[in-house]
Nucleic acid binder design. Structure first.
Length: 758
DNA sequence: AGCACGCCGACT
DNA sequence: GTCGGCGTGCTC
């Protein structure tokens, strides 16, 4: 990876004539180097750092990004640029510096980082065709036709629709073709005629595609704060006024009013002339949050998330770039938004794993928020009820300011939680206590939530005679049985087959259903409570646009008595009517082969527990677990983050896991097991040799004797690197990247995680 | 990533 | 005799 810093030599820009101007560019390809090109004289006036250019590259032509003017390297015949693709730079110097930092940190080619930072669809594809074809920016700006009346007398022959349109235009000034179409129906022939007659003028305007089109909000105003909110806000405002980089953990329990603190902090930032960036885990799951921002700030908000069309995303990006936006709200990729003068960055639910991008450029937006905040001298607010262990630790070390909201707004009590030990009573997935509680709630007309972190009907089908179960041919995991669809499918790769009726290997006539999923619970509830209105929310019932909203709205309107669901019921929406939360198999995610499994379990349990009693009525929680004493479960039930944190720290310290040590993973995958195994062994050998040569103490774990798993038809293997020094890890990784060359059939990715950025 | 060059197996 | 396999190397 190139580690050269981006520096601009503005003088070069004005130097003319003597030496041919040359530029250094990055190409969006997996290459560690940058390239230099000669700038033809006719293109020179349009070239600036931050614009895209079209360049000859080998036998191809590709889009490249101009980093800086350069002094031409010695004795090399440079090729000339073919074209300049942008009238304005796409990025400022500060942004390019940020992207260079990312490229260095994540060991990823700068050109690909820049490509990732751009809205999809803007990039001109590489072209191998030869002739000098016309080149545009590869983008699509939407134009709108606007008509207005000219002061001329209408000839008498004009009648009917044409005359009506003309009268309307005279009355209302400029009107868009879309509006005319709504009012008069198909009228382009009439309009063309009016233009020909010199009665009407047509012009084209650039318009933005508006994701909020047709959605209105009622304005609200700042709410009074609790004492803790006020204290947190005061600290934040002081930090904002200091104009120094000031990172904070805003640790607020569910219902403590973190959002109101964000809103008022942002209002202060805007008033001081700076802008705000808000990162949320899954914006499509939290339309409520966006609504609150719009209600408070009206216009000047851009939203960036995966549900936008390419056109909408591109338009939002342009609005931000042009400074027409003061607040950007978005999912992880919004950290790349071209927003200038950032005064505050909010990372809401900072513990969420969805801030991490797990293919291509493997970045974590939560981490990058700190980096960008540092570069912008901004306030960074990491908000969560269950912060990452790493974040809480950094706050304890004084690297982050610690702001605590330990009470719910309005002094609402936390739900009373009891744990039911199901070790001995495994025959029914719903314990008698839970059934009784559900019955009570139904009788009182209150709503209940049932959480189970597994979708499908039964987890799998087993033959009672021969013991065979159905496996995914790609992923080597048991297929999950979905009764409604009469299918067995793989939850990893979406492989599916019709559910078998008889055992495929021995012909036994009846297969046994093992394990439990949300679909099975729904079925069970329908039998137990025939009159109840039951809904299910998991990825099977929320497919398609607005799938989440459809179910959530029903619950919100009180049309559902019991909602069964996976993770996704734990997030986002408030249900003021929910007074009972039931958790099935609380330990469901506890024993995964991941050192963060306990942390994740604690987080999701805390979240789902926090869904109870958010309205007027108090809530209660019943938690079914086979290992109820496990600290990840017990402390979640007690709403005791601090005790959990202390315990988890001991475990991490013992094994030198984060925050006490640093981890990186070299992830390899291939279609053949054989080539993968040899590549992994070779990689480990290379790593060990570098390690001894450089005298590093890094722990090299793996590769495992056989490929770890198979996913989407590819075998996967990884080598873990662990050390108490991040610098040592990085030295090892950089040397490895330089020295290791893998066969083309093997793909490699490096995960650098977690981080200590402060 | 593409795209070429380059050296070994089954085919019109 | 050639078409084509994918290993290796390069792209200012």
């Amino acid at each position: 990876m190139t580690t050269t810093e981006i520096k601009y030599t503005q003088q070069n820009q004005t130097v003319s004539g003597k030496q041919p101007a040359t530029v250094e560019v990055a190409v969006p390809l997996p290459l560690d180097t940058t390239f230099h090109y000669r700038v033809p004289e006719d293109l020179a006036p349009r070239i600036q750092p931050g614009v895209r250019v079209f360049v000859p590259f080998g036998r191809r032509k590709v889009t490249a990004y101009v980093l800086r003017f350069s002094t031409p390297p010695e004795g090399q015949q440079l090729k000339g640029l073919l074209d300049v693709l942008d009238p304005e730079p796409l990025w400022t110097e500060a942004e390019l510096t940020f992207f260079q930092w990312i490229a260095d940190y994540y060991l990823h080619p700068l050109g690909e980082v820049l490509k990732t930072a751009l809205p999809t669809g803007i990039n001109l594809q590489s072209r191998s065709s030869v002739d000098g074809e016309a080149v545009s920016g590869g983008k699509k700006v939407r134009h709108e036709r606007v008509f207005s009346a000219l002061p001329a007398d209408a000839p008498v022959k004009l009648r009917g629709k044409g005359l009506d349109i003309l009268a309307f235009l005279r009355q209302s000034g400029s009107v868009s073709s879309a509006e005319l179409k709504v009012r008069f129906g198909e009228c382009s022939p009439n309009l063309r005629r009016l233009v020909e007659l010199g009665l009407v003028r047509m012009s084209e305007h650039e318009v933005y595609r508006d994701p909020f089109a047709g959605l209105s909000v009622t304005k609200d105003s700042p709410k009074p704060l609790t004492l803790h909110q006020q204290q947190a806000l005061t600290t934040i405002l002081t930090a904002l006024d200091s104009r120094y980089f000031s990172p904070f953990l805003l640790h607020g329990i569910t219902g403590s009013g973190k959002t109101e603190v964000y809103l008022q902090g942002i209002a202060h930032t805007l008033a001081a002339g700076r802008n705000a960036l808000v990162l949320v885990p899954e914006i499509s799951l939290t339309p409520q949050l966006v609504q609150r921002f719009r209600a408070r700030f009206c216009d000047g908000i851009a939203v960036l998330h995966s549900a936008l069309s390419d056109g909408e995303r591109y338009d939002e990006w342009r609005r931000i770039r042009r400074g027409e936006v003061r607040i950007v709200i978005g999912a992880r990729s919004a950290i790349f938004a071209p927003l200038e003068r950032i005064g505050i960055i909010v990372v809401d639910e900072e513990h969420e794993a969805s801030f991490k991008q797990s293919d291509g450029l493997r970045y974590n937006a939560r981490d990058l928020a700190l980096v960008r905040g540092q570069q912008e001298q901004a306030v960074v607010l990491l908000g969560s009820a269950t912060p990452l262990i790493t974040t809480r630790f950094a706050a304890q070390q004084g690297k982050l300011g610690y702001l605590s909201l330990p009470e719910r707004v309005g002094n609402r009590p936390l739900p009373a939680t009891s744990i039911i030990n199901t070790r001995m009573t495994a025959e029914s997935p719903l314990s008698p206590q839970l059934i009784e509680a559900l019955a009570d709630n139904l009788e009182r007309g209150e709503q209940s939530l049932l959480f189970l972190n597994r979708r499908g009907f039964a987890s799998w089908l087993v033959c009672p005679a021969c013991g065979a179960d159905l496996q995914c041919p790609n992923c080597s995991v048991s297929l999950t049985y979905h009764r409604q669809r009469r299918k067995s499918l793989c939850h990893y790769c979406d492989y599916q087959v019709p559910a078998p009726c008889i055992c495929p290997s021995c012909g036994e006539l009846e297969l046994k259903e093992m394990g439990v999923g949300t679909e099975r619970i729904e079925h069970e509830l329908l039998e137990q409570f025939p009159g109840a209105r039951i809904a299910r929310m998991d990825s099977d019932t929320t497919s398609g646009k607005g799938g989440h909203a459809r179910i959530l709205d029903k619950v919100g309107r009180g049309e559902v008595d019991i909602l069964v669901g996976t993770q996704m019921i734990a997030k986002g929406h408030d249900f003021p009517g929910v007074t009972l939360v039931g958790v099935l198999q609380a330990e469901g995610s506890l024993y995964l082969p991941d050192f963060r499994a306990t942390e994740r379990t604690f987080q999701v349990l805390s979240q789902v527990i926090g869904r109870a009693g958010r309205g007027e009525l108090p809530g209660r929680v019943l938690l079914q677990a086979m290992t109820p004493d496990h600290y990840g479960i017990a402390y979640a039930a007690d709403h005791d983050f601090e005790r959990f944190y202390q315990e988890e720290l001991l475990f991490r310290q013992e094994l030198n896991y984060p925050p006490y040590g640093f981890l990186a993973a070299i992830k390899l995958s291939a279609t053949s097991e054989k080539s993968l195994t040899s590549a992994a062994e070779q990689s480990a050998a290379v790593l060990r040799s570098i390690k001894s040569r450089l005298g590093l103490r890094v722990e090299i774990l793996g590769p495992a004797p056989a490929p770890l798993y198979r996913l989407r038809g590819r075998f996967r293997q990884q080598i873990l690197l662990k050390d108490s020094s991040r610098a040592a890890l990085r030295r090892l990784l950089i040397a490895y990247r330089r020295e290791q060359s893998l066969p083309a059939t093997v793909r490699m990715a490096i995960d650098i995680d977690p981080v200590d950025l402060l």
